[in-house]
C-alpha cells in the first residue's frame, strides 16, 4: 500500500471517529450530531465538539512529540515524557491544585514540564550523549514524581486528591473553544517545522557523525527539535493532563505503516495519535456513563497490550 493511501485512509478514519465521538456521550447517542452541530446545539456544539477537537489535538501533539523525541534520542523507547516532563508536569499541576484550588492546573503543568526539560538539558551540558540525557531525564522525573507524591500525601483537602488523580491519568474535561488555541498553534507550527526539516531529521537518526558527513549542521537542528518536542508536550499536558502511551504508540504504528522517513512518518503519526485519543476519549466518556473515567487509563489499558503485540511482531 502506498503511503499516501495509508494517509488518506487514516484521515477518513479520523473524520469518522470524530463524527462517532460527537454522536456518543453520557447523555446518550445522538445520531443527528452533524445537524445539531450545525444548528449550534448546546450539548453537541457547546460541550462535545470542543472536547473531540481537543482529544484530536492532544493525540496528534503527543504522537508528533514522540517522533521528535525518538529521533533526538535515537531511541525507539523514548516518549514525549522521557526527559522528566511527566514528573515536572505532575509536580506543577499538583502544586497548583494545592495552592490555588479554584484555578485550572494546566499552566502550572506546562511550566513544570518545560522547567524539568530545561533542568535535564542544563545537567547534561557539554558534549551531547543521548544516554546521558535519558538518564538525567529519568532521574529528574523520578525526583519530581516523589515531590508530587509528597504534596498529595500532605494535601490539606481530600477533594484535591480526586481532581489530582483525574489530572494525573489524563482528563480532557469540558474545554472552552479558546482553550484550544495554544495547543493548535503549537501543533501546526511543529508539523510545519518537522516537514520542512524532514530530510535533516532523517539524517539525524543516523547518528551525529553520519549526519555531519551528510551535510547537516547538527547543533541548531537538535536545539530546535528539543524545543519543539518540549513545547508540544507541555501544551498537550496543559490541556489534557498526562495521557500515557500515545507518544510511544503513535510513532511505532506510523513507522510500521509507512517506514522511517519523516516526510511520511510525521503526517501519519499525527493522524494515528489523533485517531487513537479520539477513540479512547469516546470510550472514557461512555463506558461508565454517566461517570467519566480518565482517558489516560483507557490508552494505557489498551495501548499496553497492543504495544506488546507490536514488539513481538517486529524484528528488533
Amino acid at each position: 500500500m502506498s503511503w499516501l493511501k495509508s494517509a488518506h485512509i487514516l484521515f477518513a478514519l479520523c473524520l469518522l471517529m470524530g463524527l462517532l465521538a460527537l454522536a456518543a456521550g453520557s447523555s446518550g447517542w445522538r445520531w443527528t450530531a452533524v445537524a445539531e452541530l450545525v444548528r449550534g446545539d448546546d450539548i453537541v456544539a457547546g460541550l462535545r465538539a470542543p472536547r473531540v477537537v481537543l482529544a484530536a489535538l492532544v493525540g496528534a501533539s503527543l504522537a508528533l512529540a514522540g517522533v521528535v523525541m525518538q529521533t533526538l534520542l535515537r531511541n525507539d523507547l523514548a516518549d514525549p515524557y522521557i526527559l522528566g516532563l511527566s514528573g515536572g508536569a505532575s509536580a506543577g499541576a499538583v502544586s497548583s491544585l494545592a495552592l490555588w484550588p479554584g484555578f485550572p492546573p494546566g499552566p502550572a503543568a506546562a511550566i513544570g514540564a518545560a522547567g524539568a526539560a530545561a533542568t535535564v538539558r542544563a545537567l547534561t551540558r557539554g558534549s551531547y550523549h543521548p544516554t546521558r540525557l535519558l538518564l538525567a531525564g529519568v532521574t529528574v522525573g523520578s525526583l519530581l514524581a516523589s515531590a508530587t507524591g509528597l504534596v498529595l500525601v500532605l494535601a490539606p483537602r481530600a477533594t484535591m486528591l480526586r481532581s489530582a488523580t483525574f489530572w494525573l491519568f489524563g482528563g480532557l474535561g469540558t474545554p472552552q473553544w479558546n482553550v484550544l488555541a495554544v495547543p493548535a498553534i503549537a501543533l501546526a507550527s511543529a508539523i510545519g517545522w518537522t516537514l520542512v526539516r524532514a530530510e535533516r531529521l532523517d539524517r539525524l537518526t543516523l547518528g551525529d557523525d553520519v549526519a555531519a558527513s551528510l551535510g547537516v549542521d547538527i547543533r541548531p537542528l537538535r536545539r530546535t527539535a528539543l524545543l519543539i518536542g518540549v513545547v508540544l508536550t507541555a501544551a498537550a499536558v496543559a490541556v489534557g493532563g498526562l495521557i500515557g502511551f500515545i507518544g510511544l504508540l503513535g510513532p511505532h504504528i506510523a513507522r510500521r505503516l509507512v517506514g522511517a522517513t519523516h516526510r511520511r512518518l510525521v503526517p501519519v503519526a499525527v493522524l494515528v495519535g489523533a485517531l487513537v485519543v479520539m477513540a479512547a476519549d469516546t470510550a472514557a466518556r461512555t463506558a461508565f456513563a454517566p461517570r467519566e473515567i480518565p482517558v489516560g487509563l483507557v490508552t494505557a489499558l489498551f495501548g499496553g497490550p497492543f504495544f506488546l503485540v507490536l514488539l513481538n511482531r517486529r524484528n528488533w
Binding site: 520542512v196 526539516r197 530530510e199 535533516r200 532523517d202 539524517r203 537518526t205 543516523l206 547518528g207 553520519v210 551528510l214 551535510g215 547537516v216 513507522r255 517506514g259 522511517a260 522517513t261 516526510r263
Partner: peptide, 21 residues
C-alpha cells in the same frame, strides 16, 4: 554504523544531502 529502519533506496537518497524530495 548501525543499520536503521530506512529502505535501501531511502538511505542512499540521504547521501545526496538534500532538503526535500
Amino acid at each position: 554504523e548501525a543499520p536503521v529502519g530506512f529502505t535501501v533506496r531511502e538511505l542512499i537518497t540521504l547521501g545526496l544531502g538534500l532538503d526535500g524530495p
